[in-house]
């Protein structure tokens, strides 16, 4: 069996969860596609290093997280403060249903850890234990993130106007908490 076949055999069962995670995490179609491509390239290059094939989804998501955070950090450090950087992510149009689109936009307003925990648990379907490993946090911390995230999401989804009131300070805070 060639390397490609081995890779795809492991990848195929994880496909839906992985794509949904990227999409929800970036809440932007183009960014999500870029993230998927970069993650696949990295994962394929380092495929020979994988130790637990059964945790392939977590392996992919770990790579995606690192790429995403590195990009955000680079952007925050080196790009000048422009209207583009202040623009809320997820502004590009997609073919998603309105509710899903609203959900992703609302998720984008959550602090990163909370957003990540919600996506991993509710959308990607990881267990609490797996989320603890991915986020390298304790169980209580993950549970707290989920609870606070859900509360905030409820508020945001009940009042859609809130989603467009993101300020510069909240954006910086999000970066720092990464």
């Amino acid at each position: 069996m060639t390397k490609q076949q081995e890779f795809l055999e492991l990848y195929n069962p994880s496909h839906d969860r992985f794509i949904r995670f990227c999409h929800a995490f970036t809440h932007d179609e183009h960014s999500a596609k870029d993230l998927v491509s970069e993650t696949i390239v990295k994962a394929y290059e380092n495929f020979h290093l994988i130790k637990k094939p059964e945790s392939f989804t977590a392996y992919l998501i770990g790579i995606a997280r690192r790429i995403y955070f590195n990009q955000r950090r680079r952007q925050w450090l080196f790009e000048p403060l422009t209207a583009k950087t202040l623009e809320a992510p997820g502004s590009s149009k997609t073919d998603l249903p309105t509710e899903v689109s609203q959900l992703y936009e609302a998720l984008g307003l959550l602090p990163t850890k909370q957003r990540e925990a919600i996506i991993l648990f509710e959308i990607t379907g990881f267990s609490l234990k797996e989320i603890c490993e991915i986020q390298k946090s304790g169980l209580s911390a993950v549970k707290a993130r989920l609870r606070r995230g859900r509360e905030r999401l409820r508020k945001l989804l009940e009042d859609p106007e809130v989603s467009y009131t993101k300020t510069k300070s909240s954006y910086d805070k999000e970066i720092i908490t990464c």
Partner: peptide, 13 residues
């Protein structure tokens, strides 16, 4: 429901 809808959505890629 939001989450349910997100689950049912066709993957982007």
């Amino acid at each position: 429901n939001y989450f349910e809808l997100a689950h049912q959505t066709k993957p982007l890629v």
